[in-house]
């Protein structure tokens, strides 16, 4: 029986603002899928060593390389992809050389609307298409992309639609069409958004969902709320603590004081999570807050296991 799980899509863009723990989620999701016997490629899209650092390979290589069992990693250098592209299509060698090394083109690549982004997306598309020459099966079951955090994380995904009207003809236009098809095909691509249980991040996650689905036609799978305070105390215990908190002789007891802090934060977080759950069309998945500023590998493995036994089972 084929179960239509949320994460049957092969290309997963993990999106979210900086500081939400997006990179950790990419790594954990990669590990979870790899443990489920899927071949996974995790992709870094900008000059950033965060993902590589988690896997102990800084920076990630510019060609896919092994990070662990069933898991590969790659960092996309859009300028390099663009140069390769030009070499492929500009058949006269010295002209290609001239273009790649000209200052005008260098500036054009920075300034041209979305050229860099569409090159990054094309590379992801190529990874998606890649097949094992012997078995003809797809080389990667999942391609998990750590999307850039700027412009609500959407700037990268918005590019093909904007670009289609600008580049009307030529190979880049054709390539943009292929990328667009991949992004908008909900059987191939999905988005996983990562946010925090606070007012502004939740607003942004909701806005993000609306824009992605209504304007860009790219399907969301789920929103992960990261760094959620766990439910340490049950309702009766909360009541008992609140009663104690009012007692004069307990005012400065650190046991009670710390409990009060936990309860207050958790209450606040739950208000925001409830709003997200009510307004979002997709499942909301929570990941816990760890009592440290630097996640250790065992904590990432712990998150991976929660994703594997929870998120990956969602339908």
């Amino acid at each position: 029986m084929i179960v239509n799980h949320l994460f049957n899509r092969r290309v997963i863009f993990v999106v979210g603002k900086g500081g939400t723990g997006k990179t950790t989620v990419v790594a954990a999701l990669g590990l979870a899928a790899a443990k489920n016997d899927k071949k996974v490629l995790v992709v870094e899209t900008q000059e950033n060593d965060a993902l590589g650092m988690l896997f102990g390979q800084t920076p990630l290589r510019e060609k896919p390389s092994v990070l662990g069992p069933n898991i590969w990693g790659v960092r996309i250098n859009s300028k390099m992809v663009l140069d390769e592209y030009i070499k492929r299509y500009v058949t006269v060698g010295f002209v290609a050389y001239q273009i790649i090394h000209s200052r005008v083109f260098e500036h054009f690549a920075v300034a041209a609307p979305g050229l860099k982004e569409v090159m990054s997306l094309s590379e992801i598309w190529r990874f998606e298409q890649k097949r094992d020459p012997e078995t003809d099966a797809f080389l990667y079951d999942h391609i998990i992309v750590d999307s850039p955090a700027t412009g609500h994380g959407l700037s990268l995904l918005r590019v093909p639609s904007t670009l289609k009207s600008m580049f009307q003809t030529g190979p880049i236009a054709t390539q943009t069409g292929w990328v667009q098809d991949m992004l908008q095909d909900s059987s191939r691509t999905c988005l996983l958004s990562v946010t925090l249980p606070e007012e502004l991040p939740i607003n942004e996650a909701l806005e993000f969902e609306r824009t992605a689905e209504n304007d860009l036609n790219i399907r969301m799978a789920s929103t992960i709320v990261n760094m959620v305070y766990p439910k340490t105390f049950n309702t009766d215990e909360v009541k008992a603590i609140e009663k104690l908190d009012h007692l004069e002789n307990q005012k400065n007891n650190p046991l009670i004081e710390a409990a009060r802090r936990h309860i207050a934060r958790r209450k606040l977080q739950q208000v925001h999570i409830r709003r997200l759950t009510e307004e979002s069309e997709h499942p909301v998945f929570q990941l816990p807050f760890y009592d440290t500023n630097n996640l250790a590998w065992e904590q990432i493995a712990d998150i991976a296991e929660q994703i594997r036994t929870g998120l990956l089972k969602l339908k």
Partner: peptide, 18 residues
């Protein structure tokens, strides 16, 4: 030849706008 190749790659319109 360079402009010609660029316009073949990206289409004339982009170059003209820029």
């Amino acid at each position: 030849p360079m402009l010609k190749s660029m316009s073949q790659l990206m289409g004339n319109r982009v170059l003209e706008d820029v």
